[in-house]
Simulated assay, not measured.
Amino acid sequence: MDRLNKAMETKDKEALARSYATDAVAYTPDQGELRGRDAITGYLMEFWEAMPDVRYNQTGRYESGNVAIDEGIVVGTNTGPLRMPTGETLPATGKQLSVHSCDVATVENGEIASHHFYFDQVEFLAQLGLMRELTSH
């Protein structure tokens, strides 16, 4: 997880990919299950595109055996296109985001084998200014 966080911080695509096993599985609140290193790396890179200044402010870190849990706040400005769970692309809103998150990863042979991403989608959508649009239909 430390290697993953460093790769995210430095936006190092190769180091990001090497953090995951080739057959890793990730579970996300917005895209569901992602299978394989390339799918997971692509998912995370979409956040770089949507928020080039994205950073992770870690507030907690826990390890037990081969499980690592990181808590924090994802902070960034939406200055790039954002792919929505529907497959549509949302144009940049210019809005600042500060979203609470928690990551639970199982590590095998020095690589992440499974990664559960948790973040508050309502908080995310509300800060982008999309809650009214979603509830007005």
Rank of each mutant, 00 (worst) to 15 (best):
S114Q: 15
T89H: 06
I40D: 01
G60C: 04
L44Q: 06
G42L: 03
Y118C: 06
H115E: 06
H100L: 02
L44Y: 04
G36E: 05
G32L: 01
N78F: 01
L134W: 09
G36T: 08
H116Q: 15
E49S: 01
N66I: 06
T86W: 08
V25G: 07
G72Q: 10
D38N: 09
T93N: 13
S101C: 15
V104W: 12
V99Y: 15
E14K: 13
G76A: 14
T89M: 15
V54H: 07
A26G: 07
R3N: 13
K95H: 15
A26L: 05
K13A: 14
D23E: 05
V75Q: 14
P29D: 03
S98H: 12
Y20I: 11
H115R: 09
N109C: 11
A21S: 15
V75H: 05
R132T: 15
C102Q: 09
E88L: 10
R61I: 00
Y43K: 03
D2N: 02
D53Q: 03
R61M: 14
A113D: 06
E14S: 11
E14W: 04
N78H: 08
E33W: 05
E49G: 00
A7G: 08
R18A: 13
T41W: 00
L4F: 10
S19F: 02
M1I: 02
L82W: 05
N5H: 12
A17G: 06
Y27E: 09
S64Q: 10
K6Q: 14
T77V: 09
R55K: 09
S114H: 07
Y56F: 08
T22N: 14
Q58M: 04
W48D: 03
F119G: 01
T106M: 12
H100C: 00
H116W: 12
Q96N: 09
A92E: 07
